[in-house]
């Protein structure tokens, strides 16, 4: 395996237009699948109050925090307005043999 790439989940583990959580090395990540089968990864916790985003709601390429409805564009991590002011860290993803890999390092 290439350095820094982590086997996170199967591609079919994520429903279209949805998100799941993934833990690695004590950190939590959110993995997304769009309705046209593109995959993305971000930090798992909201930059506002550290609420797990993988319990949130995906609308297009927006993830909405389940607690305060703060929204991010998960394709680039951009915070879309109050109550989130700080962008979300994003990670590269690759699809290999039906698996989703995330470059965490």
């Amino acid at each position: 395996m290439d350095e820094g790439w982590i086997d996170a989940c199967g591609l079919e583990d994520i429903e279209p237009e949805d998100v799941i959580g993934f833990s690695h090395g004590g950190a939590r990540y959110a993995l997304y699948r769009t309705d046209d089968d593109r995959y993305f990864a971000t930090d798992g916790l909201c930059t506002h109050e550290r609420v797990p985003l993988y319990n949130g709601f995906v609308m297009g390429q927006i993830i909405e925090c389940p607690k305060h409805n703060g929204r991010f564009d998960f394709t680039n991590g951009e915070a879309k307005g109050a109550p989130v002011c700080e962008n979300l860290k994003t990670y590269e993803t690759q699809q290999r043999n039906g698996r989703l890999f995330v470059k965490i390092a």
Binding site: H48, E49, K67, H68, A82, P83
Partner: peptide, 9 residues
Amino acid sequence: RWSHTRHHT
């Protein structure tokens, strides 16, 4: 908006 955010937290 911020007060209510805290109310939910």
